[in-house]
Every structure is written in structure tokens, then in C-alpha cells.
Design a protein around this nucleic acid. Structure first.
Lengths: 209, 209
DNA sequence: ACGTTGATACCCCGAACGGGGGAGGGAAAT
DNA sequence: ATTTCCCTCCCCCGTTCGGGGTATCAACGT
């Protein structure tokens, strides 16, 4: 039944409405076949093993793991897996992490269907594809220094309404050290104060609220 | 061609993939007919006049106006319009505003399709329908005092990294007045400082970043 | 006519923040 | 072996924030 020349597509998204839309579009293309769907990260990993799709469309936020973690798990087992992240716009940091983790594409959910199938064909052909709109967001912060693990940790505490002293206690370091971290955070993000640092970090996907 | 007993549905969403999914689900129901689709607020208003649908599914964020503003415009002209907001989860304030503005339902995009068509039928029958999950978010902040226009305005400036003095200059008021607003904002939101106020306000949908 | 609400403005004052500098240690890379 | 990076800690000091109180005025509703 399955045409050997067809691209076998696997869709992972926790929105049934969107999966339905993807299914309709894929199955409208004579050279593609939607082999399965998953609504969670663990289910995605399980089903990937079973179906070995040619191309996987993966949502970024899933109920259990993040889409990126699910992709990392799949690619650890199947390094040749061709996975396209498909999501409503997230910050540049998410894009960067997805691509660094081996995503072959990063598409926005508001893209036209014909472009979607185009990217699926290109990725299936072994290419990488990131639309100009997404690449622009990525380029905007190229060369920016990333926050370190510790700095991100501090920033999260800040977003929770903690004072420097509280953060110091929570992380078992001195208040002076927290202030140094804050200084570096604001420098790297280009923020005038801690409040703007939160705003920028959320916009860029560095922290979630 | 059009069966008189069918529910005439109109879908407004700027995500083609999602519209495709909605179309597939609606047209699978024998008692429903998708009469048209729109991808923007202005287009939604124009097309509403033309098609006079029985039930409208409206996304909250659209390229031009917000879904709520589009709904308000439509209901000003057609007070009997039955509009269901359909969106990925937003803060309780968005839900509240939508329902106050006359939305007959508030659905999340991750809901199962059969529930969607169920709600469409109930709304068509004149009922209001808000799922428990959404109602819970609404209830969580029932009785909370809303921020005033001015307070929200101040809060937005704060998110931009402005100091009290800067905000004072921007809004042509004294710095002391800004501090009074800040006090009220933090009291109402239950925030320990301005930074947490931003975090809470973003989570609740009071401001966008 | 009266009370309420929202916005405006001022005072005092302690606590927290943010910028500057220097400095030590461990781990990883070169 | 040396450098680089990250985390850690400390001092000084001016600026900003946030809590307390009181007060005026216009608008709105009753």
C-alpha cells in the first residue's frame, strides 16, 4: 500500500486541532504520507522507534518533555533522524538550542501550508531549512554572550520576586556574589535594571514565567 | 445546497494550519457547515457582515486587532453574534475581558475536537460554555481588584526598564505619583517588588512583553 | 448632596539596588 | 604551563525603591 517514493511524515503536537490541520495538508500531497501522530514527548520517542519516519514535525512545548528534549532523545538513538521544529514563535534562544541540538528546520505555525510541504521535501532531501523570518530573529542576537547556568538560575529567582539576599540564601552564596551575577546578567542582556532583564529574558526565551 | 438546519460556522485565525484543522473537523459534522474563514480582525468584521454566521470561532491574537476588539466591533453591529474565543492559554484577565465583552465561550486550542463541536452546538443553542479548566483560572483571581488604566500604563513603562523618574517624565506626572501607582500595583498583584509585578502581570495577561 | 474612586502631589526614612574597583580558586582548554 | 572562564567574596558609595502617612481635586454614581 505504501508507495516507496513517498515521504513518511510523523507529527508530534499536543494540539489535536493543529494535528488535524497538518494531517489534512500532508495527506493532500501525493508524495507524502502521514504515518503517525503523537501528543507527548514520551509517546513521540516510542512511536519514532516503531515507525522510523523520514521526517518528523515536532512541537516545542509538549505536556511532558520539551520538544527539544524529545528530539535529543530520538537523535541519540537515531542520529540520522530528520526533525523539524514547528511552533508559534519563541525566543531566539529556543531557536538556537533547537538548531544546535540537530533540528533540520524551525518553522512557525502561522506559515502557509505550501511552504510547510516545501520545507518537508527539502529536509527529506537532506537540507536544512530555516525561514528568513526565523533566521532574522536568530541573527539579531548573534555574537551576544549567552547567560551562564548560574546566571540563568539567579535570573529565575529574581523573577520570583526574591531580593538579592533571598537569592543568596537560596543558592548558598553571599549577597555580594548575587550582585556580581546581576551585573553580568544586565550587561549581557542590555538591561537597565533587573526588571527590564526579566522582560528581555522572557521575550528571548531565556526564562519562562 | 445549504441545509437549513446546519450550523453555519465562521473561523477566524491567522494560523492556516489550525484553520485547516478546524475546517476538517467542522466539515466532518453533518450538522455543521464552515461558511468562511478569515486571517485578520478587519477581514473578520468584513466577512461577518457578508456571511452572518451562526457561530464564530475567534482567535485571541490576530495580526491587526486583537480578537477581543474584533469581537467588540462585530457585536456592536450584530449584538446577537455568537462568538467563541479559541486560543492557546492566556492569562485570566484575557478570559475575563473576553467574557465581559460578550464571548459565548472560551476554548483552548489543545482541546479534543469532539468537545469543540459540542461547544459549538451548545453556543448555537444559545448557551454559554466555559470549560472547567478555563473557569478555574478565572476563579483563582475572582475578587482581585483590577489594575486601573493608569496603573497598567505605569506597569508597561516599568517593563521597559524605566525608573520611576523616567516614567514620571514620560507620563507628565511627578515621581511621587508614580511611586503611589507602583504601591497600588504591587498591592493588587500581591508582588513583593516591581520585578515580580512584571512576572505576575505577564502570567496573568495584564501586559504583554 | 454625599460618598467613592482614580489620579495627582508631598513628606520622611530605612532598605535594596547598581556601579566601581580588586582578588582568589578551580576547571577546562590551549 | 599558561590562559581563559566561571564562580566566589569583599569594600565603598551614590541612587533608587518601597512603606508609612496625609491631602487635594475631578468624575461618577446614588
Amino acid at each position: 500500500m505504501t508507495d516507496q517514493s513517498q515521504i513518511r511524515v510523523f507529527s508530534v503536537d499536543d494540539h489535536p486541532l493543529l494535528r488535524e490541520g497538518i494531517a489534512a495538508i500532508i495527506n493532500n500531497e501525493s508524495d507524502m504520507l502521514l504515518v503517525s501522530q503523537a501528543a507527548s514527548g514520551t509517546d513521540a520517542i516510542r512511536q519514532y522507534r516503531e515507525h522510523r519516519p523520514d521526517v518528523t514535525l515536532m512541537d516545542l512545548r509538549l505536556p511532558d518533555l520539551s520538544g527539544i528534549d524529545a528530539m535529543i532523545a530520538i537523535r541519540a538513538e537515531f542520529p540520522e533522524a530528520r526533525i523539524i521544529m514547528l511552533t508559534t514563535f519563541e525566543g531566539d534562544v529556543e531557536i538556537q538550542r533547537a538548531l544546535e541540538a540537530g533540528a533540520r528546520g524551525y518553522l512557525l505555525k502561522n506559515m502557509p501550508p505550501n511552504e510547510l510541504v516545501g520545507v518537508i521535501r527539502q529536509v527529506h532531501a537532506g537540507k536544512k531549512r530555516v525561514p528568513a523570518e526565523v533566521a532574522a530573529h536568530l541573527a539579531e542576537h548573534m555574537g551576544d554572550e549567552d547567560l551562564t547556568t548560574r546566571e540563568t538560575e539567579v535570573l529565575r529567582k529574581v523573577a520570583g520576586g526574591n531580593r538579592n539576599r533571598d537569592i543568596a540564601n537560596l543558592l548558598f552564596i553571599s549577597e555580594e556574589t548575587v550582585k556580581v551575577h546581576m551585573k553580568h546578567i544586565m550587561d549581557k542582556l542590555g538591561a537597565k535594571d533587573r526588571t527590564q532583564a526579566i522582560a528581555i529574558a522572557v521575550r528571548r526565551g531565556i526564562i519562562q514565567l
